[in-house]
């Protein structure tokens, strides 16, 4: 199991346990975490799965994927250098303990 902590905009934390192959988006959806919508089901079409990777985890999650940058431009909340589309972060063993912060709004 790979543990992921979601920190909502108000600071509240929710832990979830995912498996290899889950994405940070799909895990959040399965846990009913509010701050991630994931409208297009991970097809990189909607930017409603925007998250900020915690500074300590930027190395483990790696750079943005092809096309992600452009999609992020349409995210509802501010985009910074730690912004990712959570549907494009596939969980690996190295991400056990991952912390992501959720934006104020997704639509």
């Amino acid at each position: 199991m790979i543990k992921v902590t979601y920190v909502a905009h108000d600071g509240s934390r929710t832990d979830a346990e995912g498996e290899l192959g889950d994405t940070v988006m799909s895990l959040a959806i399965n846990q009913g975490i509010d701050g991630i919508i994931g409208e297009c089901g991970g097809s990189m079409m909607c930017a409603t799965c925007h998250c900020y990777v915690d500074e300590a985890w930027v190395g483990a999650t790696g750079p943005r994927l092809d096309g992600e940058e452009d999609m992020l431009e349409s995210a509802a909340s501010e985009v910074n250098e730690r912004s990712r589309l959570s549907c494009q972060i596939k969980l690996t063993e190295e991400m056990d303990g991952l912390v992501v912060h959720l934006p104020e709004e997704q639509v």
Partner: peptide, 10 residues
Amino acid sequence: NAKAHMHARR
């Protein structure tokens, strides 16, 4: 071509 698509949407 996500870039061109997003540009068009905007």
